[in-house]
Every structure is written in structure tokens, then in C-alpha cells.
Design a protein around this nucleic acid. Sequence first.
DNA 1: CTGATTTATTGATTTTCGTCAATAGTATTT
DNA 2: AAATACTATTGACGAAAATCAATAAATCAG
Lengths: 187, 187
Amino acid sequence: MEKILGIFDKFPFLSDSSKTGFLSNLEEVKFEKGELLEEEGKVSQYLYYFLEGAARSYYRRNNRDITVSFTLEGEFVTAMHSFISRKPSYENIETLEKSKAYRISHDTLLNMFENFPETERAYRMILEEYYIVLEEQQIFAKFKSARERYLELMEYRPKVIQKASVGHIASYLDMSIETLSRIRAKI
Amino acid sequence: MEKILGIFDKFPFLSDSSKTGFLSNLEEVKFEKGELLEEEGKVSQYLYYFLEGAARSYYRRNNRDITVSFTLEGEFVTAMHSFISRKPSYENIETLEKSKAYRISHDTLLNMFENFPETERAYRMILEEYYIVLEEQQIFAKFKSARERYLELMEYRPKVIQKASVGHIASYLDMSIETLSRIRAKI
DNA sequence: CTGATTTATTGATTTTCGTCAATAGTATTT
DNA sequence: AAATACTATTGACGAAAATCAATAAATCAG
């Protein structure tokens, strides 16, 4: 069974037939820097698995971009809210650099659930992880000062700091660009 | 099939045998006001469905209680982070009043998934709803002033305001008790 | 019912961080 | 390489809400 990609690492219970079935339904896609994978107003069609590159998810409010997450290699991403609810997304997902990913459409995923019930479990686990990340983020943000939030990001996801702009990081950490700039000045 | 309880309302795809199997694995439990259903430091064992009463989920930080959610009749609740990860919970769940609930243990739930694969889908949907609520909460919190957050709670979940104390509501809305008190003074 | 303890209100002060504004630095285009 | 347009830094100021502190009201225990 495929080894090159870590995509099944977290789903050891999947049978070979499920894996094969799953892989045959994946589509490999490449993106240049700044391309939109998912767009607000449209129902999110795909679940992505990043092989190379990076992306950010963001939405717009008061003419401003609010970054809600960054996706790096080896991670799944979609506009989960829309992907789940089948309602129009308020999120955009754009690549921060040239990227390569696998993707599977929502329809295909539902078919997979019918043909290979184990895959529903794998999806459930992706959802669980998504949930946990969101919950940790929420708690993490609640008690930390702007400075502490930045230091934690540096500690746990330094690659994000390398790949994203000050503006993206600031909105992700829920502070103004100026505040972030001042924090960086006196690390 | 049972009609009294709305527990299956959102899962119309469940077969009668799944429903019967599920119901036979539910345990009915009653609580007085202030009882702990789940406790920090312990792995969350149960998923609850509230028939009557209300509860709040909270964790402790800096000697303070931070309320993360309220559960009313007809809603599911657990310390989801722990229930998912099987790691010790940092959340507590306590009843706000005399309550009645169904509950199912994590082990039983996993067995159900084996015997009635459809139930895994129902669980997935509970998880999805949990996720969506959390995400909406996060965005909701980000752009609203203290006053607006309170007004929205009044609009969408007025029962919470009736049943919870000012302290609980304030921490849930991420503001000080004093601020909430002042907001209430001049509605 | 009464005293004690917890919960809520109101006022004064402080702090953190956002906004506005000017400047500097980096990229991108021609 | 010069011109233009983003992106980042730094300073001055102000606003929202936190903290500290003192009462007041409500709840609970005996």
C-alpha cells in the first residue's frame, strides 16, 4: 500500500480495499501562489490534503480579512462549516505559495461512506481533530495577552510565521498589525 | 417507534433496529441541582441527552470558572474534547437545576458503531453540530462588543439568561461580572 | 426568622490594545 | 534601475473593558 504519503497514518484500521478505493477517488491538484481553493458564497465541494505548500483560510468582515487557520503539509483542510452543512461558505481558502494537494469531493466522500463504511470513521476522526483544534484555540486565546498568543504560535507552529505575512498572522491572533509589529520588535 | 423524546428527530435515516438497539443502551439518570456529570481530570465517559433541566460546562483557569457552554432540554452534551481524545477532561459539567437525562457510555457507543454502523453516522452528525456551534461562537465573539454579545444571547438563548447566574453568563460571554451588570442596568 | 455567606450592583481608576498618521522598507512592474 | 504599490514599523492618542473597592441584595443554614 502507498507509503509516500502520510495520508493514512492516522487511520490504521482502514482495510486495504478501503484504502485503494479511497485513493482511486482522490484527485491530485496543483496551485500557484494566491489561488483560491474555496470561495465564500459557494458551497464547499472539496476536502483537501496538503502534500506540499501552505494555505490560509479566512473570511471577510468590515472590509478586512480575518484569517482563521493555516494549513501546512500533511494536514487536511476544507471550509468545514460549509462542507458539513452544505450551505454557502463564508470562508475563503487561498494558497500562500505554490502547492500540491489531494482532494476528494463531498459527493464522492458520501459514496465512499456507503461502499466502505470504515471511511466514515476516518472522516469522523478528521472531524474530531478539527473540533479539538478549534476548541483548544478558543481556550488558548481566551486567557493570553497579545504577546503570549504570539509566543505560543512561535513555539507550536513556527512555520506559519515563516510563511505568512504580518497582516495574516495579526488577524489570526486577533490583534492589530501594529500591535504585532511592536511585539516582534521586542521579543 | 418512541415518540415522546425528540432524540431521533435529527437522524431520520436510522433503521428501527438501530433505534431499538440504541435505546436499549441508554441509561436514564436524574440529578439534583449542582451535581457534577463530568469532572476535570477524569476521562469523560458519557454522552448525555437532556430530557429536563439544564447544565453548564466550565473549566478553571486562574482560580476562576470559565463557562464554555450551556445545555438545555433536547440537547446533547459531553466533555467533547475528552470524550473524543480519551484523555483527562479539563472541563466540568454541572447541573444548574434538578435534571433528567439519558446517557450512553463511550464504550457502549463504540460497540453500537460495530453492531449498527448507521449510528456512527448519527454520532458524526452530533459532532458536526458541536463543531458548527463552536465555530459560530468563535466568530460571533470576535466582532461583537460586550453589549452586542449579551443582546445576541438574549435573542437566541433567552432560557440561558433565566437559568444561569450573572457570573456564569459573564464568563461565558467573556466579560467581567461588573461589565455584564452594567449592560443589564441599561438595556 | 435571623445571621452569615454568596451574588449582584455601582463607582473610581488603570491597562491593554485599537485607531489614526507618518515614515521606512520591500516587492513588483515597466 | 526608477517608479509604483504593497507591507511593516513607530509614535501619539483614545476607547472599551478589566481590576479594585465599597455597598446592596439575595440566598442559604441553623
